[in-house]
Design a protein around this nucleic acid. Structure first.
Length: 577
DNA sequence: TTAGGGTTAG
């Protein structure tokens, strides 16, 4: 009978239909006397998208005199997928306490999934010990779930320990660990594991490459990304549209827009909304704003309704090219249209857009008037704009908010200090520096890296550790001399950028991105690509522009959030950086 | 027969 129940039940799309089906089960006696189809019914009902069906399933469950394990599993599974996954954990605990639930491996699996969604690591640890106690720990599926829960709730060390101790691993375990590392901000480790997996003879599938490519994108290592892309083509994994989306994203995040576009245009599988959004965002972050907006319009004509991410991407396009009016217009269209409710990221982009173009008061008004609670990033964005335009009053306002919100980010203090320094308010600079010391705020050192013939060279500010340092410092002198002929004057405002650090690190000429570009000029004959962990400073931005002209060389710098493409003395950001 | 891994975002 169980086989007969499911296909019919799946067709029920409303609660009324589900109830009608239940009536049929009751009149035929199946419901009361056959636990197996009953549990199946509960499962379909609790996981159905029909409105209120989960509540109904719970209601039915409460009327079952002695529910079997599968009845429990059905409800826990439904609750785990719901908007309140924590309810699944509570339900499971209640069943254990009242001794009415005899859990099996599935019960634990569903409850653990709920923990992952509720980011409930402590509960996961408890269930982990129960899994051992109940004797399910040898189950490789459960181990994978456990690993995944730990990784998703930020306990990567626990996940890694479990992974390392597993006696049997299949592709899915590797996938869970690689994806966990990639999503947990450990892209290097993710790629190492990806290599090891292949060395051990495991064959990566479409899910493995999603994690590995995401790691490449974060690191900006196009060489490795390209290798994986070749593997994808050889293995015919391109038919998966998620894989294509991530390839597009990877090329974009590595600064190869043309390659991203080629993949987008030649996709053999169906483009989804995410595909369009990804491509628009790639164009936006790479400074191809007009193309991004064209694609945004084209997408609507192609029958895709832009969602909140599409709008965000389009707003980013405006932001990264200083197209303030277009951005404001787009934002108004989005809110008027009513199809998309602006979220904090849309407001964040608007604050950035207005702030970067000097409309600080309007940016402030946006934060002041939004219907949701402003977060730290909003005030940090405003503070950044205050630095650009030297607005001390507004900067102090933003800083006070940041302190109130408990931010101890080094960047906030550095920005405020620099704003004071630019106005020669040394006493205030001292106060900020003292506060930093008291709060033990450490400045994250700026670093840049460059790939020369497959070798990554990393530079920190004022670095002297590179083997070719003499040559590099010589090159910097040459560069400075040469760009002065093009009108360069050092912007000493930025010398004060790195407060509290040694003199040599302060020296403007030796910012990590300048060292990397100098090295690139020595060693490379074509375009120079540099990745930087922080935002590029104003002086470096100016220097890059002039170098691109003086040396007739294209320079592409990946910032924290976007790309600057310098060509013939101009930057793609049109100086809205 | 039911379970584990997955894409875009200031």
């Amino acid at each position: 009978m169980a086989t007969a129940v499911e296909p019919l039940l799946q067709k029920c799309s409303t609660l009324a239909q589900i109830k009608q089906f239940q009536a049929h089960l009751i009149t035929t006696g199946i419901f009361q006397f056959q636990p197996s189809p009953r549990a199946k019914f509960l499962e379909v009902c609790s996981t159905s998208s029909a409105a209120a069906s989960l509540l109904y399933a719970v209601e039915i469950f409460r009327h079952i005199a002695s529910p079997v394990t599968n009845d429990w599993n059905a409800i826990i599974r439904g609750l785990a997928q719901s908007h309140q996954p924590a309810d699944a954990v509570a339900f499971y605990r209640q069943g254990l306490r009242m001794l009415t639930c005899k859990p099996d491996a599935l019960t634990c699996s569903f409850t653990l999934k709920a923990c992952a969604r509720a980011l409930a690591c402590n509960e996961a640890i408890q269930i982990h010990s129960q899994v051992i106690r109940f004797g399910f720990i040898a189950d490789i599926l459960l181990q994978t779930t456990l690993l995944d829960v730990y990784a998703k709730s930020g306990y990567l060390d626990n996940a890694r320990k479990l992974f390392d101790e597993m006696s049997n691993r299949d592709v899915t375990c590797w996938n869970a660990m690689i994806a966990g590392l990639a999503q947990g901000n450990q892209p290097n480790e993710a790629l190492q594991l990806f290599t090891r997996m292949r060395d051990l003879g495991f064959k990566p599938n479409e899910i493995t490459v999603l994690g590995a490519l995401s790691a490449c994108a974060q690191l900006g290592v196009v060489r490795e990304g390209e290798n994986i892309y070749n593997y994808i083509k050889n293995q015919n994994l391109e038919k998966n549209e998620q894989v294509c989306n991530v390839v597009i994203d990877m090329f974009g995040k590595c600064g190869y827009v043309t390659k991203a576009y080629q993949v987008f245009n030649s996709m053999k599988c169906t483009k989804t909304l995410i595909t369009w959004n990804t491509m628009i965002m790639v164009l936006a972050t790479n400074g191809e704003s007009l193309e991004a907006l064209q694609l945004f319009n084209q997408m609507s004509k192609g029958g895709f309704r832009p969602d909140n991410v599409s709008y965000l991407a389009a707003l980013c396009a405006c932001n990264h090219a200083g197209m303030v009016e277009n951005g404001v217009e787009l934002f108004e269209k989005m809110t008027k249209d009513g199809s998309v409710v602006p979220n904090i990221k849309h407001y964040g982009t608007m604050v950035d857009l207005l702030g970067r173009s000097g409309r600080l008061q309007e940016a402030y008004n946006v934060i002041d008037s939004i219907p949701i609670k402003p977060d730290i990033i909003l005030w940090q964005t405003l503070l950044g704009a205050c630095k650009t335009y030297g607005n001390v009053e507004m900067a102090e306002k933003a800083s006070r908010k940041l302190v109130e919100m408990g931010s101890s980010s080094d960047g906030d203090f550095v920005l405020l200090s620099n704003i004071y320094a630019a106005k020669h308010r040394w006493k205030d600079v001292g106060i900020v520096r003292e506060t930093m010391k008291n709060k033990e705020v450490k400045k994250v050192p700026g670093f840049s890296y460059i790939d020369v013939d497959g070798v990554i060279h990393k530079f920190v500010n004022g670095d002297k550790s590179h083997l070719d340092m003499e040559e590099i410092y010589g090159k910097i002198e040459e560069i400075m001399g040469r760009i002065m002929e093009y009108g360069y004057v050092a912007d000493t405002g930025y010398v004060l950028h790195d407060i509290g650090l040694e003199e040599k690190e302060n020296a403007l000429s030796y910012h990590s991105e300048k060292l990397a570009v100098a090295f690139g000029l020595i060693r490379m004959s074509s375009e120079i690509r540099v990745n930087k962990n922080l935002r590029i400073c104003g002086d470096c931005h100016e220097v890059m522009k002039l170098v691109s002209k003086a040396y007739d060389r294209e320079i592409i710098v990946r910032d924290r959030t976007r790309f600057h493409r310098f060509k013939q003395g101009l930057c793609s950001c049109k100086d809205y950086w």
